[in-house]
Computed example of a mutant assay.
Amino acid sequence: MATNVDICNLALSQLGENGQVTALNPPDGSDYAAHCSNYYPIALRKLFEEFDWSFAQTRARLNKLASFDTSLYAYKNAYALPSDCVRVTRVAEAKELDSVCPFITEWPRNYEIQYSKTTDNKILLTDVDNAVLQYTIYKDAPAIFPTYFIEALVLCLAVYLVGPLKRSDAASSMAQNLRQAYQNALSEAKTIDAQNAARRKHPYVASQLRARWV
């Protein structure tokens, strides 16, 4: 089972470095650990932003913003995004048939993400009244990372480390080769990960009929 320290050492090996990082938070005192501590979170977030990874999907009921000027937007509602949200996958609506049988509609709803001066943060705009968000979470938990994700992360981190560690004319060509290797690994990882989920397209069913389902 890989750790973030293992991932950093694998990235260093891609650069031909023999340094062994032993700790990141806080760094163990070596230059290698200092650079890895700086760039590992950036590389990890970049990779999460690249794709809706199946192992990093989660859901949350959103908090509606009370101070929302509807005259400025073409949507009825605004919601605060979770702080660990990297990518929005879909917005659905939570409804209740009765107190015993709550359900979430799986029909995706329209939305936009914009910056709010009021909250000094990103907000989600939609016409949905009780929004449930499915999103890609940012989580530094290598224990849940599949091998294909780790391989891409190692190469992504190596790209960031080239500049600080390889101060030579060969650094630019090495960075170019690593970027290409990263893109190849990322493409393969997306293909493999996409096989972990399947969603059938159902024909439209009128709401009156859906209400009778049990």
Rank of each mutant, 00 (worst) to 15 (best):
E112Q: 07
I104H: 10
A131L: 11
V128N: 01
K122G: 14
V88T: 09
A131Y: 14
K95Q: 15
Y148H: 11
I144T: 11
V91L: 07
P142K: 05
K95T: 11
I144V: 14
R87G: 08
V100L: 14
Y111M: 04
T136L: 11
A141D: 12
D129R: 05
F145G: 03
N121A: 14
K122C: 13
D129W: 03
L125D: 06
A131M: 09
L97K: 15
V88I: 13
Y111K: 01
T118M: 01
S99A: 14
I144C: 13
F145Q: 06
R90P: 07
W107E: 15
L124C: 00
N130W: 03
P142E: 10
Q134T: 09
N121I: 14
W107H: 09
K95S: 12
T89Q: 06
N110Y: 13
T126Q: 05
R109P: 04
T105G: 02
D129G: 00
Y148N: 00
L97E: 10
D129E: 13
T119V: 07
V132E: 06
D140E: 12
R90G: 08
F103E: 10
S99C: 07
Y115E: 08
D127K: 06
D120V: 06
E112Y: 07
N121H: 15
K117A: 08
E106V: 13
A143F: 14
V128T: 12
D140S: 09
L133K: 02
E106I: 12
V128M: 03
D120W: 00
E106N: 13
I113S: 02
A131V: 06
T105F: 00
T136P: 02
P108C: 10
R109I: 02
I104A: 02
S99Y: 12
N130C: 07
K117T: 13
I104T: 13
W107L: 11
T118H: 00
A131H: 15
T105P: 07
I104L: 11
E93F: 11
T89H: 06
T119N: 08
V128P: 04
N121T: 12
A131F: 13
R90T: 12
D140W: 05
T118C: 00
Q134D: 08
P146F: 08
I113H: 03
A92F: 12
T126L: 01
D129Y: 00
D129Q: 11
Y115D: 00
